[in-house]
Computed example of a mutant assay.
Amino acid sequence: MSDFRELGIIVYGATGYTGRLVCEYLNGQYGVNGAVNWAMAGRSKEKLIAVRDELGLSENIPLVVADADNADSVREMVARTRVLITTVGPYQLYGSDLVAACAGAGTDYVDLCGEPAWMHEMIAAHGDAAKASGARIVFSCGFDSIPFDLGVWFLQEAAEERFGAPMPRLKGRVRVMKGTFSGGTLASFKATMAAAARQPEMVKLLMDPFALTEGHAGVEQPSGMAPVYEEELQSWSAPFVMATINTKNIHRSNFLLGYAYGKDFVYDEMLLTGPGQQGEKMALAVAEDKSMAEDPRQPGEGPSKEERDAGHYDVLFVGSNAEGQTIKASVKGDKDPGYGSTSKMIAESAVCLLQHPGNVPGGIYTPAPAMGGLLVERLQKNAGLTFQLED
């Protein structure tokens, strides 16, 4: 990005629950007006001041007023910064003008989106503009889908080094997940379900694992929708609620990486529930759980700091090939996935783009092809994630 920008990073949605956590993290990790040079943005200057003071942040942090319902204010905001973080969802309701503005202005963009129908729409509408302007638009820079997308990338890099080829079959299995989904994630889920009810054709897109690969379809994929006992893992596996978005993002990563995982790549995600009758019982209970659709939490609500700090997660990845070779890797996070870890991941994604302006050309990305090992290194150094191979 050759043109001068006043700011390095703007956090849009800074007065919301997750936005506040992002601001706290940037302040603690990078200070004020240093190399990162970040600002807080939202609809109300008075509320921005109140939140800044409530968090004990410096008065030197710039405040930017912008409203998602006012396209002119959005364009003015993105023209001031090199990277925009937005935590304002559901993105299908509040994100379209932001993506359009960033793609047009050459401003890099990161979000927490888990809304594949909207992402599909944005790729079609603004992909060419982002390529032309140099804007790197990176969706899904939180728990969906960084640990999964980069976990697959990490394993495949190791497989290339060990075996000289990627693993054509890869399983993502959540071993531990202590914490809650964010109110924003729940709102996005409900908005997507409401949109699908109005537009039945959207259901087909939501069910398609290759919905984000721009017309390029791969081989048939497992559904992951029913409990199954996996002999090699000695455990029952249950459907994992975030697999619907993560699998789409991982297939998009493979597509954007020039099919680095292979054109016959097969991937699915499930939740490990343990062996025996107890494991089976838990897997069945998970499969029948409808609580997410009924959860009353709204965006802006979340757990206490003590609850965030007590959370953590552990995801196992198992790769295999026709020759019987296998390789395992894991990704672990030290905070609850929906808030504590997510706020650190999106902040580090933005800083990664800021500090590596020429690593990839403009376009609409997922985390792995946009940042790959650069982001893995940052997350391990700063954000409490660990990526490791397992015997």
Rank of each mutant, 00 (worst) to 15 (best):
E377H: 10
N60Y: 07
V241D: 00
A159V: 12
L155M: 14
A368T: 09
A195Q: 13
V51M: 13
E115C: 10
I327A: 11
L186E: 07
M202D: 00
G28I: 06
A129H: 01
T244I: 14
Q221D: 04
Q388N: 13
K248W: 01
L155T: 09
G384F: 13
N249R: 00
L385C: 05
M193Q: 12
Y94M: 13
M77S: 07
K171Q: 12
M270F: 06
T87L: 08
P90D: 09
E115F: 09
A310M: 06
A35E: 12
D208G: 04
A287D: 02
C141N: 15
A124N: 08
M292I: 15
H312I: 00
T192L: 14
G95T: 11
E269M: 12
S341Y: 05
V78D: 02
Y30K: 02
A383V: 08
A105E: 15
L55A: 08
N359I: 13
E377S: 14
G311A: 09
G372P: 00
G151D: 05
E6S: 12
I364E: 02
D336R: 01
M167L: 12
C102M: 09
N37W: 03
R52S: 06
A39M: 11
M292H: 07
G164Y: 07
Q277P: 00
I137S: 04
M345V: 09
H216W: 04
S235L: 03
R52C: 04
L205G: 12
G179A: 04
Y109A: 02
S133E: 05
T213P: 05
G42R: 13
E160C: 09
I9A: 04
A39N: 10
D309Y: 03
F210E: 02
P166W: 10
S223H: 02
A370R: 05
Y365H: 07
E230C: 09
T326D: 00
Q199W: 00
L21V: 11
L389M: 15
N60L: 13
Y313Q: 00
R173V: 15
L98I: 15
P227K: 03
Q355I: 04
P222N: 05
M225R: 12
A132N: 10
K335S: 09
D309N: 14
L379F: 05
G302C: 06
G172K: 01
S343E: 08
V51E: 13
P361S: 15
A285M: 13
E232T: 12
K335P: 01
Y261D: 03
M345T: 08
E348V: 06
L155A: 08
V22E: 03
F210L: 03
L374M: 14
